[in-house]
Write a protein that binds this DNA or RNA. Structure first.
Lengths: 331, 331
DNA sequence: GCTCTCACTGGAAGCGGTCCCACGCGGTTA
DNA sequence: TAACCGCGTGGGACCGCTTCCAGTGAGAGC
């Protein structure tokens, strides 16, 4: 018994057929049949043959792998550990990829190294790439080098995208707070560099304007600490605020803690509404009302599009955000 | 300008050298030098050449990719979205992989499909594989097919592993509760199938025995809901419990909520201590004391080992768990 | 001045597949 | 019966790159 991995040639020899026929049978392609199929399958089983992905990729020009790319602050990958959002992206993709027998490659980049790294990734992309947190500029650049790209964040119009209705979601959240009778509604936005944060800000402003409210807001990174500090600051400037719209659940968790620390009761004194419906939302006390984004569905749709292959430039599907009422906005 | 991707042949032609020389320069290998190096680099820049990974992998027999494998309940990937633990694993690996120019492939399997799927993955593993949530049996099977494997969970002795001291951590947690004067300490364990959960249970039992406490415990899945229900059940059976050791922060978040819902104050009436120090731990109210596992460091160490290449069967590094004191155990 | 090194360089053989194409053979149609 | 068709099959040319090996020329030693 040789310890070297069996190749398709070994299979062909054992089965007594040509390499071409073996390939056809293994790939379940037409043009081979009956007894030969059986013999090849037997040979495969006997040898424990498993095709070499690299060779397959090279020969066919279309290996089966999907790339997920996120660009964030240093260190690369830092985001992954701290924000459950990204896990949901991966989770949404896995079942489909598993069914398709495709692999998932994860790339985490930092802003400074992103441009060249993106080019490199674009060169290696096979089935397609999903951009999960990339600035519009970078997304466009990437898309120029690799057409098989789908973005999960608002981006240049040319890049196909499966995006959440961040504007509408933020609008709905503020409206809900207003509906609850809140009038001194503050907002905590995400970092300016994030296009999601930008859209949520737009939705907030639109609602504030339409409802005739005063605009009170602060910005912070998408972390619990960021939310905590922003809330403290906001509370110092506007001690009478009675509601906070927070652009991310993780921040919102910090906001609830800050409010509690400052003697405000949630939801009696201050209503809080988050965004994302991440695991953190249900872990807070009281549990957070939030705008649920169908992240998994969006990611799945992106993969489905990539697997289908017919990706039309400019395609855009908008996924609505759904209000999840929990205790932080109970009256 | 042809739209076809340039190949190394194009580079060689433009640079006026042979393909072999171009390859040497591009791979920074010895045996080519001086003016030729410059010319090749110029050609690369001019053409925007980027090597084809598949071809490289095939020709050299050693592509650069690390596989991360987790086996969980259906659907495959479900775990990823709901438990921040796994994100930390990926986050810990990314910086090292980025430096090494290696790719990260993520595989999520469900229990029923795992055995065959694992064999297939093992055949494709290149730099190595990291097992992040696999039963000892499956881990051993995988390791038999692929030596370049490191486990992040307790497993068969032969499989190299970077594991957390779950036993010691659980022991320390219970001891801490005892130190705080708690005597009616309950425990909520994870699912029996998880070897981490099993070890944490062992640590708990050891402490309980040594401290002469009564053993009170329940088991639940590693989710907030699981923790909530287990806590309710425990509370019904033992209304006088004054502390809970919970084998996972996500469950612990549910426990805190259940305690609050049942009129217990945390930490005044009941101390709660979690495990993992995941994002959820700091989002709860009050924030959770917990046993911090250096997940990122463990994952990084695993990658470092794989990149170094000298993986000795049976290698085992134990990472201590560190008590993080937060409000849920304040006195 | 003529070998002998030695550092470079290019030719060419794979790596393990996919897939085009030519070939042979039994069965129709003229 | 001859030309024709089509399916199943095998031969062999690639895919893009690495790497072995033989060849080349310049410099050194005799």
């Amino acid at each position: 018994m040789s310890s070297a991995k069996p190749t398709i040639d070994d299979v062909a020899r054992v089965a007594g057929v040509s390499r071409a026929t073996a390939s056809r049978v293994i790939n379940n392609a037409p043009g081979a049949s009956g007894p030969l199929r059986v013999r090849v399958h037997e040979a495969v089983a006997k040898l424990g043959y498993l095709p070499n992905e690299a060779a397959r990729a090279l020969a066919s020009g279309r290996p089966r792998a999907v790339d997920v790319i996120a660009v964030t602050c240093n260190p690369p990958g830092g985001w992954l550990g701290s924000n459950p959002y990204y896990s949901r992206v991966l989770a949404g993709m896995m079942p489909l990829l598993a069914d398709a027998g495709a692999q998932l490659r994860v790339h985490a980049l930092s802003h400074d190294s992103a441009p060249e790294a993106l080019d490199e990734i674009a060169a290696g992309v096979t089935l397609g790439a999903v951009l999960s947190d990339v600035t519009p500029t970078l997304a466009a650049r990437f898309h120029r080098r690799c057409r098989r790209t789908v973005s999960l964040v608002p981006t240049a119009a040319t890049v196909p995208a499966m995006v959440a209705d961040n504007i509408g979601g933020a609008y709905a959240a503020v409206t809900e707070l207003h509906r609850l009778g809140r009038r001194r509604i503050a907002a905590i936005h995400g970092p300016v560099i994030s296009s999601c944060a930008a859209d949520r800000r737009i939705g907030h402003l639109r609602a504030v304007e339409q409802l005739g409210l005063a605009e009170v807001s602060a910005a912070a990174p998408f972390t619990r600490e960021g939310g905590y500090q922003a809330a403290q600051q906001l509370l110092a400037q506007h001690p009478d605020l009675d509601a906070v719209f927070v652009a991310c659940d993780l921040m919102a968790a910090g906001v609830v803690q800050a409010l509690t620390a400052c003697g405000r009761r949630v939801p009696e004194d201050v209503s809080v509404i988050g965004f994302d419906d991440s695991v953190a939302a249900s872990c807070t006390n009281p549990p957070l009302s939030t705008m649920r984004l169908p992240v998994e569905e969006m990611a799945a749709a992106a993969v489905r599009l990539l697997l289908s292959g017919d990706i039309t430039s400019g395609h855009r599907t908008l996924f609505p955000a759904e209000l999840v009422r929990r205790q932080s906005t109970a009256r």
